[in-house]
Design a binder for these strands. Structure first.
Lengths: 346, 346
DNA sequence: AAGGAATGCGGAAACGGTTCCATGGTATAT
DNA sequence: ATATACCATGGAACCGTTTCCGCATTCCTT
């Protein structure tokens, strides 16, 4: 019992093996300059005493803790998007012998930076080497974090209304290019009567809408949109927009949903309205979330590589830690058009 | 720059404030027995130097690190069930000033305990105080963990084939009672022709099936089941089972799906087959996952309180840490029948 | 006014590692 | 044979906290 209390220390090991503490330390780490026979005696003592080095004592000396903190801003996890980013961070961390602290933070975007209450994990110095900011990030929070002088990297697509220079590293995906490719693809299949659906009060929705408009303009098509701001969930927004879309004439031949959740709501509306997808209306989403495969037929959409974003966040952060003075980088991952069953050739 | 290197120490603060290190320490912690005027001078120095105590040095002395490790076994996060347990752990941890390390482990259930490769985070002592094992846990892994002498608590419902005494704390939900209530409810609405769908090669599926059989037996109903083992995903399994169910005569009036994913597959099958839910067949699920609300009408199901399981895991673990000798506890949370639209009164 | 308890405070010791320096031994070069 | 280099090793010093001990001061109590 209570192995915590009377756990063996490095000095116990040294005594047991009949060597000095320095030698034990050398065996534990690099291990250079230790005779084979000595090393084996030390290892035996370690096994015999069940010695495991104390993490804290060790870290006092090391320059870094080899722990990063994944900080999820203003989000809950039932939304699997950020859970998958965390998954990517953890997968990568495991390979690189790093560890991941998980913490959440909730604040109002209107609160003054100095007044935001930070999770207590940020009070201490040296617990972790750097921060990965996921979830939704507002400028007031970033200002606050910057003051802490902790290296950090931000998942950039959910950066809301950030004006001015960005004095931090960023990782994100190319929402404009992804949507542009998607719409081009739909147009290439013969669709000329397109409609975009998405609440443009979100900045990342605006990016996708602009890509939609650009594609239409490039092909001299007249775009229609349902883009009102709303308090509804994305799925409900899609369902509501679907009802409105069905009331318009002529019906669009293809609807571009700003994401898969909205697409799901649209699909439900169309189904209820007896309108076949993709028979009468083609449908395309964005993100490639779990909903895409639940639809029938499965949703054609644009895949955001969530796990890879996580990996890139960690790698960028570690790079920053190694080279504190390097210029700030903005990494943009590409997306993939995933053709499934909801867009048909006209 | 590089605030990491020349960061202020407690001695710098002491010098700046013209007091001893002991006094600064007292101000930082409990703060008893320090004159108000002195305390203010110290706090001023702390603010002035931007002093933040070194987490590691502090933890050398403390009995505990106030960090727990959430270890996800053999799972990925797109499956939101465990993500929501983690969410519960984190919410609770934030309130209790604890921190959460997140790590994953992947192993084969056939590997000998001694040969399972553990994440490197378990090599060091003192990094965290205890473990929360979520995901799917096999006996070989638990045996391995037990040898490490680290306090741990297990999410119990995904414990596969564990025989014999359980020398650890457990938190879970009452799958039997939850399913029993659900089936009783369906029977109470007049259904007499029930069918259970779920791959019984999973232990937790068997528990639910037994509850289903018990309820049928209690009401002298003749149960039917589709329970073959399969490699299919749950949704696909439901869809496959749905086709088989529609081929049988008479059709069941109600289908009890072992979980919401299977229910989703069944719903899709029934819809494709032109069979109305709940018009011709009522449907009930289990878990209350995101899929339940995506169905149309939304799925009547049994809610597992995932966040509360997470909270209970953390609380149990902290209790164990406080009282290492207390007898092992097995906490079972109740479930809630969530009546939505897929079960109709006959 | 004197004795005793409680408070305020400084500084040494301790925590469990790493790092560095001094030392003795062995191999190689001259 | 001697100088030089390098290897193997023990042990002291150190990292930045907390804790504890001891002393000075203050506050009651009688």
């Amino acid at each position: 019992m209570s192995s915590v209390c009377n756990a063996a220390t490095i000095r116990d090991v040294a005594r047991e093996a009949g060597v000095g503490v320095g030698t034990v330390s050398r065996v534990l780490n690099g291990g250079d300059h230790v005779r084979l026979e000595t090393r084996e005696r030390v290892m035996l003592a370690i096994r015999h005493l069940g010695f495991r080095p104390n993490a804290q004592a060790r870290r006092i000396h090391r320059r870094h803790s080899e722990i990063v903190c994944f900080l999820l801003g203003n989000r809950k996890f039932p939304n699997s998007f950020h859970a998958r980013i965390l998954q990517g961070v953890e997968d990568c961390a495991r390979e690189l012998k790093q560890h991941v602290l998980f913490a959440g933070v909730h604040y109002d975007s209107e609160t003054a930076p100095g007044l935001i209450e930070l999770p207590s994990i940020l009070d201490e110095r040296g617990l972790f080497d750097g921060l990965i900011l996921s979830g939704t990030n507002h400028p007031n929070f970033l200002t606050r974090i910057q003051k802490l002088q902790i290296p950090f990297v931000v998942f950039g697509n959910n950066l809301v209304d950030f004006e001015g220079d960005k004095y931090f590293d960023q990782v994100g995906y190319d929402g404009f290019k992804g949507e542009l490719e998607a719409v081009e693809n739909v147009i290439g299949l013969g669709h000329e009567n397109l409609m975009f659906v998405g609440d443009v009060s979100y900045p990342w929705v605006r990016v996708r809408q602009e890509a939609f408009l650009r594609a239409c303009q490039d092909h001299k098509l007249k775009p229609r949109s349902i883009i009102e701001a709303s308090e509804l969930s994305f799925v409900d927004y899609g369902e509501w927009a679907g009802r409105r879309a069905l009331a318009r004439r002529p019906l669009p031949t293809a609807v571009v949903a700003v994401n898969d959740e909205v697409a799901y709501g649209l699909w439900r509306s169309f189904r209820r309205g007896g309108v076949s997808v993709p028979g009468e209306i083609s449908l395309i989403g964005f993100d490639d979330r779990e909903e895409a495969l639940l639809m029938d037929p499965p949703l054609t959409t644009v895949r955001v590589r969530k796990e890879e974003i996580g990996r890139a966040c960690l790698i960028t952060l570690l790079e920053r830690l190694r080279h504190p003075e390097m210029p700030f980088v903005e990494t943009t991952l590409s997306t993939d058009l995933v053709v499934r069953g909801t867009v048909r050739k006209l």
